[in-house]
């Protein structure tokens, strides 16, 4: 078994940002491994994305084309990936912990009879064994674990998005494209998508926002979120929330930041009445500067914050917002 394989995702004819990140991670591992980095791309017309994958770090692309692979469908994608893995015997597989990666990664591992290192924020190669080592947060970020595998290969890591930067696009990179023939039987498709309902949030997308203003349970109800929206608008940012707030129905789940919500990495993260439970912090560990407004000086959020105000948000927030308005509009 040889070679490092990144399972790619395609959107709009290009490889996704998390795939770019994994190709970079793969190249870093390959400095030790020296077996080459391969991207596996699946779709009804994935050919357009092959050059994109090569320009972002793939040395080779394995391509599977089939009308059944037009959109992600777990049963068809699994059958195709199983064939790719069995035909090409990679020693390491990297999968992004996206909606698709979370859904298919563990099933692929079980189908191949191997283990997965889940939710890694760092992956390394042990220079002696050439085995994969994954570092990952556990217990909601309260602890870190380093895990490794037995000799059984491939070693599979599912990597948290935004853990690695993407390489700059290099159009001059060359790579081989190999088509893998897979016969997919339409009867294997068991789970069928019958409807897709989009509930897009207004304004700046939370995941892309440079500034995020989040509220927690301490706000006491849905009303104060209007004030957070005013502040977010002034800073051209987006509004986030803790899971408790979403579970209480104060704001829609599309605002949820945390381990099971959205992962954000803004330049500035302003939290209001958020205690900073580890489950929440796991969704914003990439934030560059955290600001906390909370009445409890022992709240965990102050351990993560660069700047903090201990006080009643009812009084702090209006004055803060007003001052921000003056400063940003003058």
């Amino acid at each position: 078994m040889s070679g490092l394989m990144v399972i790619g995702e395609i959107s709009d004819g290009k490889i996704s940002s998390s795939t770019c990140e994994l190709l970079n991670a793969g190249q870093m591992l390959d400095d030790t491994l020296k077996e080459g980095v391969v991207a596996a791309l699946l779709g009804s017309d994935p050919g357009k994305a092959t050059q994109d994958a090569i320009a972002h770090g793939a040395d080779k692309v394995y391509l599977v084309e089939d009308p059944l692979l037009k959109d992600y469908q777990i049963d068809a994608y699994l059958a195709a990936l199983e064939k790719v893995c069995k035909d090409t015997s990679p020693s390491i597989i990297l999968i992004a912990r996206t909606l698709i990666g979370r859904d298919i990664g563990p099933r692929l591992a079980f189908r191949l009879g191997v283990a997965v290192a889940q939710d890694c924020i760092e992956v390394k190669i042990d220079p002696n064994t050439k085995g994969l080592v994954g570092n990952r947060p556990v217990y909601g970020g309260n602890a870190m674990a380093a895990v490794t595998f037995t000799q059984l290969k491939p070693h599979i890591a599912i990597v948290r998005p935004k853990s690695y930067a993407a390489l700059e696009t290099d159009g001059s990179r060359k790579g081989e494209v190999v088509t893998i023939q897979v016969k997919l039987d339409p009867a294997l498709v068991k789970v069928k998508l019958i409807k897709s309902v989009k509930e897009p949030s207004e304004g700046v997308r939370l995941e892309d926002a440079q500034v995020v203003v989040s509220g927690g349970r301490g706000l006491g109800g849905p009303e104060p979120f209007k004030d957070l929206e005013v502040l977010a608008k002034l800073l051209k940012g987006a509004v986030g929330a803790s899971r408790a707030v979403c579970d209480a129905g104060w704001v829609d789940y599309s605002h949820q930041v945390g381990l099971t919500g959205k992962t954000i990495a803004p330049d500035l993260y302003i939290t209001v009445a958020i205690s900073g439970a580890s489950q929440h912090m796991a969704g914003c560990s990439g934030a560059k500067v955290v600001v906390a407004i909370n009445k409890d000086s022992s709240a965990n959020i102050f351990k993560e914050a660069r700047y903090g105000v201990v006080g009643d948000w009812n009084k702090v927030l209006p004055a803060f917002t007003e001052a921000v308005r003056e400063l940003t509009q003058s």
Partner: peptide
């Protein structure tokens, strides 16, 4: 899978607390 290490990460962050005459002033 085998566990090589399990530890509590040390945070280096130092919070600078902003104080004022009252809560609004701190804001």
């Amino acid at each position: 899978l085998s566990l090589l290490d399990l530890f509590i990460p040390v945070t280096q962050k130092q919070c600078e607390f902003i104080e004022g005459e009252n809560d609004a002033d701190a804001g």
